[in-house]
Design a binder for these strands. Structure first.
Lengths: 225, 225
DNA sequence: ACCTGAACACCGTTCAAGT
DNA sequence: ACCTGAACACCGTTCAAGT
């Protein structure tokens, strides 16, 4: 029997206990993490749980909803949180970094996260980020621009850095060497070099965008005088 | 006969002229643009050209290569170019904006562009961008960081802004209203509001990241003294 | 209420056969 | 050289039937 089998048998061999929504979401997450997003099929999920593929439809309307639930579980498991101490800017940076770490641990979910929004986690993220940006002094259209800019940066960067990891990054590494520019010599030697560069680039970009948010906040203060 | 049929018949009704690689790439691009990326199947492509699905494999090793060729055609058709006049910074910004415009015209390619790199266009883009960043005074590791930051921003933002457009953006619009924060009231009223905001956000972010590049260049100059 | 089994309308890709 | 036809091993999803 497969190690991932979760079907609970009652002690006297009666009908097995019904599977929960969460059991399906967890199994889907495990398949995505271990075998890649493309390996998640209804049939593969059924096999994992010792159940027919179509049993999933008792718990989820379609595959989109299943993946959304897997994303929810991923955010719970990875502990995406905002630091409790520090300046609003530092706490915001901490939240965005904790999102990046979550996708570093679950790279195969970075691509679906572009188009499948986990409603629950998104609402929570948005509210926290808005609160911190307001503490930084932003409001009105500038507040929305600042939020949207950071969300786009976070989601876009996670997708590009972790999408089809490590295959896509390896292809990009080979592409760099194809350019034939000495600038890439050192940073494209190994996959680890590429990953380290991505991490550094992420920090430089994040700092720059948070600077822009502070700058917008300062301009709004000046306007009030 | 479908309007998209390209099979050329010889004047005396002999065997039809063989289809070119480019004909397949063009037809693939047309299907992606008109019916969405998911609608591109080998069978749909064959139908479009009045040919069996498996005929594609005479010209492309697999679907990945076909989509790569469609991306190449898209870049050619859209005229992605760098402005000839202006400061290095302005020319670089112009190149990145012209990329964004290309995906605005062909939104269904923004998502595949994350993982399927068009080798030819990428090498050209990298060389041009490196040249302009060098003119801005960057070199060494700072040059690579600056380049990587701008590429990630461009690819990531295009994917998030145009991926599954307009469905994904409409879902995001509804998500914004679900948050129940007055900050989003105006900007999430219609899809046009969301698109306008994205365009503005893109410019604010681009300016900020180019500022960071100039700042890195200045720090390098100081180090030399 | 939860799962099975059969079925439908699809996929990408391979390979022998035609011309 | 280029395309056809049949086939293989898959997909997501629906729906009647079982328990």
């Amino acid at each position: 029997m497969a190690s991932g089998t979760v079907t609970a048998m009652s002690s006297r061999g009666e009908a097995p206990a019904p599977l929960s929504r969460e059991a399906f979401a967890d199994a889907a997450l495990a398949i995505i993490d271990e075998r890649g997003y493309d390996a998640l099929s209804m049939r593969a999920l059924g096999d994992e749980l010792g159940v027919h593929a179509t049993a999933v439809y008792r718990h989820f309307a379609n595959k989109h909803d299943l993946v959304e639930a897997a994303l929810t579980r991923m955010f719970e498991v990875s502990g995406v949180t905002v630091p409790e101490a520090g300046t609003p800017r530092d706490r915001l940076a901490g939240l965005i970094r904790s999102l990046r770490r979550a996708f570093a641990e679950h790279p195969n979910l970075a691509l679906p996260n572009l188009t499948i929004q986990d409603e629950q986690a998104t609402v929570e993220f948005v509210r926290t980020a808005l609160h911190l940006l307001r503490e930084m002094g932003l409001r009105g259209r500038e507040l929305v621009i600042a939020y949207q800019m950071l969300e786009t940066y976070s989601v876009g960067t996670n997708a590009y850095d972790w999408g089809y990891y490590p295959d896509a990054l390896e292809a990009r590494r080979r592409g760099r060497r194809l350019v034939g520019d000495e600038a890439f010599d050192e940073v494209s030697r190994t996959l680890a070099d590429m990953t380290a560069l991505n991490d550094e680039v992420f920090e430089v970009g994040l700092r720059s965008l948070l600077d822009a948010c502070e700058e917008m906040s300062r301009r709004q203060d000046d306007q009030l005088r």
